[in-house]
Design a protein around this nucleic acid. Sequence first.
DNA 1: GCGACAG
DNA 2: ATCTTGTCGC
Length: 278
Amino acid sequence: MPVAALQERAFLYHRRHNCVPAYAATRTGCPENRQHPIPAACVVAIMNRPRHWIDPPDLKAATIAQREIARAAEHRDRFGPVSVVAGVDTSMKWRDTRGPIHAAVAPLPWPLADPFAAHTISVVPPIPYVPGYLGFRECPALLQVLDGIARRPDLVLVDGHGIAHPRRCGIATHLGVVADVPSIGCAKTILCGKVEGELGPDPGDRAPLVDRGEVVAMALRTRPRANPIFVSTGHRISLETAVEWVLKLTDGRRLPLPTRLAHEAANAARRAYSDGAS
DNA sequence: GCGACAG
DNA sequence: ATCTTGTCGC
């Protein structure tokens, strides 16, 4: 059976058996609050966009939505002064394709100071992981977690690609456009394209990631002797500015600080959820 | 047709 | 994405 057919089958099956369109939402670490509906604010955020941008009936519609989102995305700097920068990430149980994912947003003041409290949420995603369609799996959870903090971040770092995607619509672009927030894609491995030229060994060294003749991301060395990360524009930011911000937020580790904090928060949420379930 | 494939 | 301990090296 062709891969596309298998992907379609998984997509539809997952969709039919889980909580779409009303995502079953829970608050992390509060097992007694499970099965509550999502906040109205999140429903509004989703409903204010073409429905298939976040809730397509099948992979074909999802592919069309990605092309439309890619057209709507902006890759030039268009954001105000940054006073809050946030990382978002999700976590899940090992090899669990049907269970909930745990999304976190970790806001930081800029200039850098003590981080604000992270916020987490646990939801059953509408589809399983399908390479190339990550946004449709994780955006509902990320939208909801973004709506859960008092102040909307001025800039968001997403774990995954922005335009470094076959249809130029990775999760960072997807989330940026749907939430209308400036976003940067920050991935650990390549989805498409190849690094052109030699990448130097020192932090700050970079080499372009090229796909079909386009520079879609920058392979960026953030730590000596560690593999590079791949920085791409999500929405309302240029590649050069995105790289600048990632470097400003890098503190000797491979991944930038907001991303790490979000990762930690999401993992903590997953453990709290598991502990509460048992 | 075949291989590759973020999280 | 995640499981899991120690071990090696700057």
